[in-house]
Amino acid sequence: DKPVLAIQVLGTVKWFNVRNGYGFINRNDTKEDVFVHQTAIKRNNPRKFLRSVGDGETVEFDVVEGEKGAEATNVTGPGGVPVKGSRYAPNR
């Protein structure tokens, strides 16, 4: 398990590439950019086929120490709701 650095952090999605399945979230508290992989998205938009977060979307997440620095995990919308997802992700 990766060491946990912070829990229930709010941030804004800087960018997310649906095809490659990753992007970055900017933390509201430290203004640090945190890597996010599609496997870290815990509550996906049920209408979306692929797990994703949308550019500019506000999300809540935990921060863990990854191999290359801070990574987001347990990604949801604020308060644990499903994320909205990327407009580029296909609908079901």
Rank of each mutant, 00 (worst) to 15 (best):
K68T: 05
I7N: 10
G54K: 12
N45Q: 05
D55E: 15
P90I: 09
Y88E: 07
D55W: 06
E65L: 15
V59T: 01
V53N: 01
T58S: 10
P90A: 11
A72M: 04
L50N: 09
T58R: 10
T58D: 07
G80E: 04
G79E: 09
E71S: 08
A72C: 08
G85E: 03
D55S: 14
D62L: 01
V83Y: 02
G69D: 03
K48L: 03
R92E: 08
A72Q: 02
K48F: 03
G66Y: 01
L10F: 05
N45G: 07
N44G: 09
G80S: 03
V83F: 03
G77Q: 04
G79H: 10
A72V: 02
S52Q: 02
E57R: 02
D33E: 12
N91L: 12
L10M: 12
Y22N: 15
E67F: 13
G56V: 00
P90M: 10
A70R: 14
R51M: 07
N45M: 04
E65H: 14
K31W: 06
G66N: 08
N44S: 09
G77Y: 07
R87T: 12
P82K: 04
R92M: 12
P90C: 09
G56M: 05
N91A: 12
N17Y: 14
E60P: 00
S52T: 09
P78N: 01
R87G: 08
N74E: 05
E60R: 11
S86M: 03
E71I: 13
P90H: 11
F61P: 01
K48I: 00
Y22C: 15
R47F: 12
V63Y: 01
F61V: 02
V59M: 01
V81Q: 14
D55Q: 15
G79A: 10
I25V: 13
V75Y: 01
N26S: 11
T30N: 10
E67T: 14
A72E: 00
G85A: 03
K68M: 09
G56T: 03
G56D: 06
K68L: 10
E67M: 13
G69Q: 02
V75D: 00
T58G: 05
V81P: 02
G79T: 06
G66H: 04
R87N: 12
L50S: 09
E57T: 03
G85L: 02
G54V: 05
V63K: 01
Y88V: 07
N45A: 08
K31R: 10
N28K: 01
T76S: 10
T76P: 00
A70K: 13
G66I: 00
G69L: 06
G79R: 12
D55Y: 09
Q8H: 11
P78D: 00
G69I: 01
R51G: 04
T58M: 12
T76Y: 01
G77I: 06
G85F: 04
D62V: 01
F61W: 03
K48C: 07
G85Q: 04
S52W: 00
E71Y: 15
N45D: 09
E57M: 02
V59W: 00
N44V: 08
K68D: 05
V63N: 00
N28S: 08
K48M: 06
N44W: 12
E60A: 09
T58K: 10
A72S: 02
G66T: 12
G80L: 03
N91G: 11
R47L: 14
R87I: 14
R92G: 09
G56S: 06
T73D: 11
G80A: 05
T73S: 14
G54H: 08
T73M: 15
G69T: 03
